[in-house]
Design a protein around this nucleic acid. Structure first.
Lengths: 210, 210
DNA sequence: GCCGTCACTATGCGATCGTATAGTCACTAT
DNA sequence: ATAGTGACTATACGATCGCATAGTGACGGC
């Protein structure tokens, strides 16, 4: 009666199911992402999802967490890492608009979750936390670069520049994802670096680590 | 058996239903936006929706069209209207990040549709058309301002600046909607104008029409 | 080697989905 | 005044939804 199955360690299976959920959201939309669709995508029976996740809502929330990690993980790691302020800002910009985050499927996932941030408290909390962290990174990077160049700016100016930097990163990422087939990644980076240089009035350089 | 009802002109009823659909998407998410939910929101029976729209998909697509019109309508009208290049760009920026478009519900709607652009041909076409129009407006406005200031830039530079202007507008709009309660509209505009001035190296002025 | 544990499948329940259809009544044209 | 039109309600159908439950078999501890 029961067909054979492979047993997977708990962690692996959970990860599989979360990624299957993300696939479904991308391919079917959130309204097409049923428990059964996720199970089929993951190659398991639908009952298994309830075994690993208390509810569908929990599963979706974990998919949001994973998505956010893909988006802000690399740039935040750079901002928190080593290097000169100028170099860090340069790499922060590149990580914010290219690499894994620049895949259209990530935009699709992000848009799905963002559209529901205001009606789902858990989503709101996830968003809030990451938003604050990213903005703080923008602020700290700008402050570092400005000090490095011995430029004096007011706290208000710093705040405004942080918002503007954040906006440019978001906007370029958005545009890049939405027309990924026609905008070259290197060009995208060049535009991003150029825009931030003009915004701050500071040269970031273009040297690529060998 | 049948309760009484008011008859509405065809156009009014269609508009009502489209707006009820938008309300539902904002309040319930796309997955909660059922034909019955829309009908209840509009105060009519669920059968009426099928009478006015061939399918639920058609109804949703019209809601997307209406959303896009709210977002790009005002700035595109300014770009196509009268005025000096500098003044038009200034008003274009303001219309792109403040006014009706800056309401969080609009972002919610936009994100809902954007998340499905790649899996729905009609969505893709609506998006494509508006995207091209907005980008062209950015390009034409920058060209106008640059010529007005007797600055010479290459076609490539114009292209890059258009992308960057587009990105700043998108990003500031996004940020403004996502934290509407804590970012002042006037400050948002000031940041936008300032960022574009630095991007182009040109002063836009701040005079407000009395 | 067998035994208990739990990851896993299979199946069913009630609710709700989009859509189809039949009938009703508000309104217009004459 | 009345007949015709179509905007509108009411209801039903089959599919599919999230979730619950019962049972099965893979695998580690002994």
């Amino acid at each position: 009666m029961t067909t054979s199955f492979r047993r997977a360690p708990d962690f692996d299976r959970r990860t599989d199911l979360i990624e299957a959920t993300m696939d479904c959201i991308v391919e079917l939309g959130i309204q097409g992402t049923s428990v059964r669709a996720v199970a089929t995508k993951a190659g398991v029976s639908n009952g298994l999802i309830r075994h690993h996740f208390a509810s569908k809502e929990n599963l979706i929330a974990e998919a949001y967490g994973r998505t956010i990690a893909i988006i802000t993980g690399p740039p935040l790691a750079i901002a928190a890492g080593d290097g000169s302020p100028r170099e860090k800002l340069r790499r922060f910009i590149i990580a914010s608009i290219s690499g894994p985050v620049a895949e259209p499927r990530i935009l699709s996932l992000w848009a799905t979750f963002i559209s529901q941030v205001h009606i789902n408290d858990r989503f709101r909390e996830i968003h809030r936390t990451q938003y604050v962290a990213y903005r703080a990174a923008c602020r700290s990077l700008i402050q570092g670069v400005v000090e490095e160049n011995r430029v004096r700016i007011s706290a208000d100016e710093l705040h405004h520049l942080s918002i503007a930097l954040n906006a440019i990163m978001d906007g370029l990422w958005l545009e890049g994802c939405l027309s990924a087939e026609e905008i070259d990644a290197a060009l995208q980076i060049e535009i991003g670096l150029g825009a931030v240089e003009r915004l701050l009035g500071i040269k970031l350089g273009r040297e690529v680590p060998a």
